[in-house]
């Protein structure tokens, strides 16, 4: 039952965060790259204000998988690094926390580009 509830919460919260993005696409002239960038920066802000960690606690992947969660992760990384290393942590914290995701995206994409070829749509 706990599993189903977790999945449901992730579905609802994640879906809602995506629906907000869809409103931005349809109602504003924001390009997808701008929306992604805004989501990450807002995620850092919400993480810094301590709001987003509560949402992650509630919805798990529903909050951490949208790019807001990526911003929250950067904020969390900086917070922990400044605590542990002082001033150096200002620079290292964000990248360290985001390292797994960014490295995975770059490396998998490199391999994919070696293996696959783009095709016409449809």
């Amino acid at each position: 039952m706990d599993v189903l509830l977790s999945l449901l919460k992730a579905f609802l919260v994640g879906g809602a965060l995506c629906a907000v993005g869809q409103i931005l696409i349809d109602r504003t002239k924001l390009t997808p790259a701008r929306i992604l960038t805004s989501y990450v920066v807002i995620g850092v802000l919400l993480g810094a204000l301590g709001i987003y960690p509560k949402l992650v606690e509630f919805a798990g992947a529903g909050a951490s998988v949208p790019l807001l969660g990526f911003g929250n992760l950067l904020a969390k990384g900086v917070r922990e690094a400044v605590k542990a290393d002082g001033a150096l942590g200002i620079l290292t914290g964000g990248f360290t926390a985001a390292a797994a995701g960014i490295a995975a995206a770059l490396f998998f994409s490199l391999v994919a580009a070696l293996v696959f070829k783009p095709k016409e749509k449809g």
Binding site: G21, P32, V65, G101, A105
Partner: peptide, 11 residues
């Protein structure tokens, strides 16, 4: 946005 906003969109 359903495939844009999640980390999969970044990938």
């Amino acid at each position: 946005a359903g495939t844009l906003v999640p980390i999969t969109g970044f990938a």
